[in-house]
């Protein structure tokens, strides 16, 4: 066993300096940016025909792009100027399949990726990033209840296993969640945060409520991945041939009718992505820990 202690020391510290500086790995991306000025079709078709180009919207398998909605509700003159071209890609639904970029060369020039993580898990980009956290941002007084340590209880409510793999990766030497005082706990009674992944199936919903009842206040619920947020690629698949809508509505935690009361009372934080990058999950956990979200 002594040899492993030696080997471990010899291996050295491989962790990132993440919260102190954004030293992400080469292929990391957090959120999509959409620059309407660069989307040529967007501008040209609007000015010529009065109708926006819908190629990317048609290609999107999850309905994350909604050019039409924003067009109908707004004045087209604003669009031509790119002034209101903010709500185009909804990152709460996007699964990063890249079909929109493949489909249309113009959106490909407009879309780019940010590797910046903001404090409140959003970024400065011109995408639909209004991640509505039920928690209010603390303006004056920080909520420092979890300042020293944060305990997380993970629940899988119907994910593909990739989210679990990403959450488990937080314990590896690269991310090393422990150094920041964040721990996975086996019991909900010691938990400060419930980390929920998956489409929130009916069978798991009862178990989730049980876990929630056993988790002491103050508590946060973090929804990891697009599955619990909007259902992702599974959304709208419940009521199809052979499947009973009441039993299998893969619409996610937020859209589930059962959760009406919970959504009003609980503090919910969203971490989109399919699967969400460990950095994103870590960032959300750090935000909770440092008290950026007030109860």
């Amino acid at each position: 066993m002594a040899i492993w202690t030696y080997n471990g020391l010899k291996f050295g510290i491989k962790s990132v300096n993440f919260p102190k500086e954004n030293d992400f790995y080469e292929g990391f991306f957090s959120y999509l940016k959409f620059d309407a000025d660069k989307c040529l079709n967007y501008k040209e078709t609007l000015t010529a025909n009065g109708l926006p180009c819908l190629k990317c919207q048609e290609a999107c398998p999850t309905g994350a792009i909604d050019i039409l909605n924003s067009y109908d509700s707004k004045n087209s003159a604003n669009y031509a100027n790119g002034a209101e071209a903010k709500h185009i890609i909804d990152i709460k639904k996007c699964i990063y399949c890249g079909l929109c970029v493949s489909e249309c060369s113009n959106i490909a020039e407009a879309v780019s990726f940010s590797n910046f993580i903001g404090k409140d898990n959003t970024n400065e980009a011109n995408v639909k990033n209004d991640i509505k956290n039920n928690v209010k941002k603390s303006g004056k007084k920080k909520f420092g209840f979890f300042k020293k340590s944060l305990f997380v209880k993970h629940i899988d409510s119907g994910s593909c296993g990739a989210c679990e793999s990403e959450i488990a990766a937080l314990n590896n030497p690269y991310y090393n969640m422990h150094r920041l005082g964040i721990f996975i706990t086996p019991s909900p009674r010691f938990a400060d945060v419930i980390l929920l992944s998956g489409v929130f199936t009916d069978k798991m919903s009862e178990i989730f409520y049980n876990v929630l009842d056993n988790t002491p206040n103050p508590r946060f619920i973090i929804l990891a991945g697009v599955c619990p947020i909007s259902g992702g690629i599974w959304s709208g698949s419940g009521g199809l041939a052979g499947g009973s809508e009441s039993l299998l509505n893969n619409c996610g935690f937020l859209n589930n009718k059962k959760n009406g009361d919970i959504l009003k009372t609980e503090n919910i934080i969203l971490v989109p992505g399919c699967p969400p990058n460990p950095f994103m999950i870590l960032n959300a956990l750090l935000s909770v820990k440092s008290g950026d979200f007030a109860i």
Binding site: D156, G158, T201, K203, M204, G238, L240, A241, G242, N250
Partner: peptide
């Protein structure tokens, strides 16, 4: 097992093309 059944085959049948 079966706590997280997502009815994947029906979901696949409801898609619009082969890539989905």
């Amino acid at each position: 097992l079966g706590y997280k059944t997502r009815n994947a085959m029906n979901a696949a049948k409801g898609k619009r093309n082969l890539y989905e």
